[in-house]
Every structure is written in C-alpha cells, then in structure tokens.
Computed example of a mutant assay.
Amino acid sequence: MSKRGFLTGGLLVLALGLGLAWLAWDRWMDGTWTNENVTVELWPGDNAVQHMARLEAQLPPAGKRVLDHVEMRSWEGRLKAGRYRFPAGESVKNSATRLVTGNREAVKVVIRAGRDVGPVAGTATRRIHADSTEVAHMLAQDSMMWRVLPNTYEMWWETNAQALGERLLLEHARWWNEDRVAAARAQGLSPKEATVLASVVQAETAVISEAPAVAALYLNRLNKGMALQADPTLIFALGDPSIRRVLDVHKEVDSPYNTYQHRGLPPGPIRYVDPRYLQSVLHPAEHAYLYMCAKPGGDGTHDFARNYREHLRNARAYQSWLNKQRIYR
C-alpha cells in the first residue's frame, strides 16, 4: 500500500472512530439520569462558576452527566437563575437545555391580608428568593401600603424585593379598572380613600357578610360630616393591638389616626386589606344607620342604630357583657 493510501485509510478510520464516539456520547446524553423528580435552585447574581458549584452541590451523583453536558457545550455562561424541576426520566440533554433556556418553575406567592407588615412580608417571601427585611421595608412605605392587594400570585422563584413591588403595583393597576374607579367615585371616594375606608371596615368586623353594612354606616357618617369615631383607628394610633375595650383615655391620643378628634378618613390604611372588604366599600348596603356597637357574646357582629339613644342602649348592653367577662381594657 502506498504511503498516500495508508494515510487516507488512517484518516477514514479516525473519522469513523470519532463518529462512533460522538454517536455513543450523543446516545449517552439522550439517556435518562434520574428515576425521581429533582429540584435545584440557581441564585440570581451568581456567576457561571457559582452556578456550576450550586448545581454540583444540589444534584444527586447521577447529575454529573448533566454538568458534563453543560461543560461539553461550553454552556456555563448561559446558565440562568431560577428554580428548576427535573422530572423523573428526563434525558441529560433536555435537563441541560432546560438550565440554559430558563425553562424554570413558577411558584405560588401568597400576599396575605393583615395588620402587621412583618407577617405579610414573611409569608410573601416564603417561596421566593427576595429578602423578607427588604420586602417589609418596601411594603411599609405609605405610597405602597394602600396599593397592596392580598391574593395568591404566580411568580418566578428568583423574584427579588424590587420585582415583587413592581408586580404588586401592576396587579393594583389591573384591579382598579374603570368600573371599580367609577364605583368608588359614586361613593365620593378615590381608590386610595376607598382602600383606607376598607381597612377600617375590615379592622371593625371579621364577619365578611357584615362588611357592606359597616361600610355603609361609615359612608353615612362621612356624608353627614360626622367623625368616624372608629375604635380600630385608635388602637392603630396607640400601637397596642391587645386593647379589647376602648376607654375615654384612649380617645385623647394625639394622632391623625384618631378619628374621634379628626373628621374624615385617616391619612392611610391601618392594615393590608382583603379585596372583599374593598368590594364592600364599592358596593355598600343601603341603610340609615349612624352608630354601631359590638354585640354581647363576642361573635364579632354588631348592633346598629339610627340615633344616639338607641346606640347608648346597645353600648350599655355590651359594656355589661364585658364586665361579666372581666374584660377591662
């Protein structure tokens, strides 16, 4: 055999060997690598080296095949932050592709209604990467608090505090459509004012079926130029949610949230408002009540009155019940 023929033959054998090796590798990468679901989290802000290190720490031993595929393709720099779920039986190739295309898992983020920002922020960050302290600071801002609509939202795991705030503002704008803005205007309120009043209504009654009646009572008082005289605003001003019996001394607190001393609505909401209570303000009951007092028995409902004489009778009955329960503050 000539030297040229020998060289040609050698090249053909080499090409065949490389081809077979590639086919074997490709088939190996097409194979499955796990018999159970696997979840990993790649942190936002990490570089390629850190992403690879997190993958190595979170993947089971068989997951090394996924890392090998990423390295073989030189995809390290294309890895995207997020929470990834690899289903049982997925191929090595598809798992690696999932990591660089951002085919990640969304999570359910619960924004709860409540009085205190801490629990609201803590619940909101339970399933996302955002820092709860940063979220609490963001949610506590006056310009933000009235715009928070408690609900369950689908978000990416890597969502940070800023992205969470932007999403909540977007949901607020969507919720306040033309019909709801018009409904608020029909009650003489702006969206913010409706939210502030709804926060007082929710703090006043935990019985959602009673909320439209409570909302109507406060609207009646506002329309007549009367002070709201809402006990929950005093408790908010005093910063003492343990108060169960509002006394005359409490009504002397110097605060714009003291609706016994200041007419009109307080300057901001006193809690993060369940949207159902917002609806009760937009669509209140129709009645002429101006006064209410908690009913004896402690079931959270109220007795309503059209005049002060009726109200005093209801108030005495409730105060008598409190005394029997030995509730003095």
Rank of each mutant, 00 (worst) to 15 (best):
S2Y: 13
K3R: 14
R4N: 03
F6N: 04
L7R: 04
T8I: 10
T8P: 00
G9N: 02
G9H: 02
G9S: 06
G9R: 10
G10Q: 00
L12S: 04
L16N: 01
G17P: 12
G19V: 03
W22R: 15
A24T: 06
R27E: 05
T32D: 06
N35G: 15
E36Q: 15
N37R: 15
T39K: 10
V40E: 11
E41L: 07
E41P: 00
W43L: 14
Q50K: 12
A53G: 05
R54K: 14
A62W: 00
A62K: 08
R65I: 04
R65H: 11
R65G: 06
D68E: 14
E71F: 00
M72K: 04
M72T: 05
S74W: 02
W75K: 09
E76R: 09
G77D: 13
K80E: 14
K80T: 13
A81T: 12
G82W: 12
Y84P: 15
F86A: 13
A88R: 09
G89Q: 10
K93T: 07
R98Y: 01
T101E: 09
T101K: 06
N103W: 01
R104L: 02
V107A: 11
V110C: 07
A113S: 14
G114Y: 03
T123A: 03
A124I: 04
T125R: 07
R127Q: 12
I128T: 13
H129K: 12
D131T: 06
S132P: 12
S132A: 14
T133W: 00
E134W: 00
Q141W: 00
M144N: 11
M144W: 07
M144H: 12
P150W: 01
N151A: 15
T152R: 09
Y153W: 12
Y153L: 10
W157H: 03
W157V: 01
W157P: 01
E158Y: 06
N160E: 04
R174L: 13
W176M: 08
N177V: 02
D179V: 09
A184S: 12
Q187H: 05
G188T: 03
P191N: 03
T195D: 05
V200I: 15
V201F: 07
Q202S: 05
S209N: 08
P212W: 08
P212A: 14
N220D: 06
N223M: 04
L228N: 07
Q229A: 02
D231R: 02
T233I: 10
T233G: 09
L234I: 15
L234Y: 03
L234R: 04
A237R: 03
L238F: 02
R244F: 04
R245P: 14
V246C: 07
H250I: 00
H250P: 11
S255L: 07
Y257M: 07
Q261Y: 12
Q261D: 10
Y272G: 11
P275G: 04
Q279K: 06
Q279E: 15
S280M: 09
S280R: 11
H283T: 11
P284M: 05
P284K: 03
A288W: 01
Y291Q: 01
P296I: 01
P296W: 00
G297T: 04
T301I: 02
H302F: 06
A305K: 03
N307T: 14
H311G: 10
A317P: 03
Q319E: 05
Q325H: 07
I327R: 01
